[in-house]
Nucleic acid binder design. Structure first.
Lengths: 251, 251
DNA sequence: TAAGATTTGTTCGTATGTATC
DNA sequence: GGATACATACGAACAAATCTT
């Protein structure tokens, strides 16, 4: 595997090696558990020192493309990028870009009702039970800011779970990503005090009605219930005037 | 900066160092061009060898969080994640997940009309001219598969540009990301032959009408034109995909 | 132009840790 | 437990880039 780009431009050697390995994986269409050549093998293949190869491996690892194990039979292995890692990497992109509540809800209003509609009548009883279990985690209005924060995070877990039931991976990812961003918000800003009784009651009522519509297979109703839910949720969030995300998210 | 996690779990040292540096950046709320401690500084701070520190830096670099320069006044600097890098990292996530045309268009149908509507009457004459210039790149129907592919990529550039005019960074990113995926599709699948005259004529007519609506500030019309555009575009794409599949089987 | 200083980039040799047999 | 195979980490040296004088 000779260098195909002799006067190669600006990038560091590890970066180029990482690119080359990536291409190699694609060309040979390696699958999830497949093993990459060992470090010593790569050293001689690329004619570079151990440190350089290792840095390249770290690059791939940071992107979630490989995992490595020590010991005999160990080495580096192709691994799918996990959903969590993808979300973390994407969240970094928005670190400096200051998403507003309005920005997020503009998408939620469009996407969440769509998810609800497409899932109506297509969820198993197990899946519906799972959603009900999440709703059951907040049976009574919160009595403190702490409790309310927990409830809101749980409520977002409801949406994230629902999203992951979708058979559209792109739709599922985007919706789930937004739920995660909003969850992180609640952790790092004291967003939910004072406790807001209205948020609790409306939110819970909507989610219960939504589950009923999903079970009944009533797509139109599921859609409109979710739309109304998003509508009030945004108004309440806006009133609380959150500021979004000022941190890197650890995977 | 001593180790706060003595029995630290499974992760490698470079990964932990990278995390620590990330946290450090957040805590000190460093901005885009700010400089990180030098390698030698970090070596003594973390009590680790040069190679280890460098691997940590590569992890951060791979995520787009830092850049590094040599020489006096050089070092590692905080850098915003670029849009392109974020897209590439996210694309890795979908590498194994095989998005279908239907998956992508389910989102395009929802998001693109929204973008069109929110931008109506809010674009400068310069921006409108830029869009017109893109449309002008395909003044006549394509006469070969090559030419048609180029036209379709240009047409996707139209949507990407429009998306980036949006003042909602999240919406802009998602739409622009989809356009890029579809562009890559055209490279890796021979999706656009044989030349399809209908795609050309309808697509061009829609985009011209859309620009008119945007200029006139007619949000409702911009929305409906874009919706119709997405509708026919998806049907044509689906038909062509079917055609490609059949050809593949036949061959 | 040239020399020197500073900082990242790369190499090599060696030693340690870890999992399999 | 011992041998083996592999990644992981260290330390010292040298190379390359880039700024200053």
């Amino acid at each position: 595997m000779p260098e195909t780009t002799p006067p190669s431009p600006k990038r560091s050697r590890p970066a180029r090696v990482a690119e080359a390995i990536k291409d190699w994986v694609v060309e040979h269409s390696l699958k999830k558990g497949d093993r990459l050549p060992s470090e010593t093998e790569l050293m001689s293949r690329f004619g570079m020192a151990k440190g350089t190869i290792r840095e390249a491996m770290r690059i791939l690892e940071a992107q979630g493309l490989i995992e490595s194990r020590t010991g005999p039979g160990g080495g580096c292995f192709v691994g799918e990028v996990t959903e969590d890692r993808a979300k973390a990497l994407l969240a970094n992109y928005f670190y400096f870009r200051e998403l507003s509540i309005g920005n997020i809800y503009q998408l939620r209003r469009l996407l969440e009702p769509e998810i609800a509609a497409t899932l109506a009548g297509r969820l198993s009883e197990d899946q519906l039970a799972e959603l009900e279990a999440i709703v059951a985690r907040y049976p009574a209005p919160a009595r403190s800011a702490e409790e309310e924060r927990d409830q809101h995070v749980a409520s977002l877990a409801f949406h994230r779970r629902l999203a992951n039931f979708s058979d559209n991976p792109l739709l599922a990812f985007v919706v789930s990503f937004m739920a995660r961003i909003l969850s992180d918000l609640t952790v790092y800003r004291r967003l939910y005090d004072p406790p807001n009784r209205e948020l609790y009651e409306k939110g819970r009522a909507y989610q219960e009605e939504l589950i009923a519509a999903l079970r009944a297979g009533d797509a139109a109703r599921a859609r409109s219930v979710m739309a109304a839910h998003m509508d009030t949720a945004e108004r309440l969030m806006q009133a609380q005037e959150a500021q979004v995300m000022r941190r890197f998210i650890a995977e």
